[in-house]
C-alpha cells in the first residue's frame, strides 16, 4: 500500500453473500474513495456484482454503523453490504 491507496474489508450478508459467492473481500482502493465509489468498483466486476447498484435495496454499514453512499472511507474501514434486515 502507498499513500495513494488504502485497504478496506467488505462484508456481505444473507442473500447478497449467497448470490455473490463470498462473505468477505479485502480491497485496495484509491484514497478518498466514498462508499459510492466502492460500489462502482465492485459493480465493474460484472455478473451478479451489478446488483449492488440499481438492483434491490442495499443497506450499508461502515465500522458497524449504518451510513449512506456519500460516506468517505478511511484506511482499514470495515464496510458491510446487506439486504434490509428481517430479525425478531
Amino acid at each position: 500500500m502507498n499513500s495513494n491507496t488504502m485497504t478496506v474489508s467488505v462484508l456481505f450478508f444473507a442473500r447478497l453473500r449467497e448470490s455473490l459467492g463470498t462473505g468477505e473481500l479485502q480491497l485496495t482502493v484509491p484514497s478518498a474513495t466514498t462508499v459510492d465509489g466502492l460500489l462502482t468498483i465492485l459493480t465493474e466486476k460484472g455478473g451478479p456484482w451489478s446488483q449492488l447498484k440499481g438492483g434491490a435495496p442495499v443497506m450499508i454499514a461502515v465500522n458497524q454503523t449504518m451510513t449512506t453512499t456519500s460516506t468517505l472511507l478511511q484506511d482499514q474501514d470495515e464496510v458491510a453490504l446487506f439486504p434490509p434486515v428481517t430479525g425478531g
Binding site: 439486504p83 434486515v85 428481517t86 430479525g87
Partner: peptide
Amino acid sequence: LKTTAPFWKKEITREGGHWV
C-alpha cells in the same frame, strides 16, 4: 430491533430456502 438489528431470516420449506 426488527427493522434495524442486522439479522436475516431464511425460511426453510420442502422446496428449499427463501430469504424473508
